[in-house]
Write a protein that binds this DNA or RNA. Sequence first.
DNA 1: ATAGGCATTCCAGTTACTGGAAGCTCAACC
DNA 2: GGTTGAGCTTCCAGTAACTGGAATGCCTAT
Lengths: 131, 131
Amino acid sequence: MNIGEVAIKSGLPAKTIRYYEDIGLIRPDRHDNGYRLFRQTHLHQLMFVARARSLGFSIDDCRVLLALYDDDSRASAQVKALAQDHLAQIDAKIAGLRAMRDTLADLVDACHGDSRPDCPILKDLAAKHHG
Amino acid sequence: MNIGEVAIKSGLPAKTIRYYEDIGLIRPDRHDNGYRLFRQTHLHQLMFVARARSLGFSIDDCRVLLALYDDDSRASAQVKALAQDHLAQIDAKIAGLRAMRDTLADLVDACHGDSRPDCPILKDLAAKHHG
DNA sequence: ATAGGCATTCCAGTTACTGGAAGCTCAACC
DNA sequence: GGTTGAGCTTCCAGTAACTGGAATGCCTAT
């Protein structure tokens, strides 16, 4: 397969696939003319990565996950630990965003939003938030 | 004030403050010796930005917010619109993360996490997720 | 004079791509 | 055979918002 075909099948832009090769995440073969030659395993790897990325795993996580997937003697505990770590980070990020969201929503509610200059949002931003 | 003092008072690293000057977000004066000279207004601007950033506003949003804050004839509607936009983006991000989180949590729960290689997490990643 | 701490600039790296330019290859059509 | 057009190649630069580090200058105190 050429890159265009795997791009369609994996749902990843060709640019991204080239980038993944650049950073050594996948290693497609080459045709004599210099074109990349993708085999089924390459496509599988790309789909695997696409799915992992959609779950928020970093590229480095993907490297590890691919290696674990390749390793028949892996312990599932390793995979679970990685996923749990990642889950904790997502939870932390959600918590942070929720705190932001709540504060911001309060400010938006408090702002009448008309043609007058008085604005609780700006007042909050200008207030000293020490501590 | 020198940069070290505003750094402490604003809670921002000196590096970040220099960066903010680089990109034209703030414009401190200069001592004869080349040191930056920060006045109260500069400190206020930095605290304003720090607070806005902590609410997730982008640097470009901060530019606009600072300008609105400076403009006594602003309409609070402008500020509210900006904040509402931002709020919507945060909500979207939270929704995306929650979807991730739920899928990931299911997978983590399904994985026994012992020394055996069998692993539902890897199985999911390797499965075809078409559509 | 010299040591310490603070300040300066500039360069490079981070994450994961994305856009664009210049140029080669391949298949098809006249 | 020549030419078009799509698809492929590489390489460079830019994104967001910093952060780290090197080399160097300034200021105060001993």
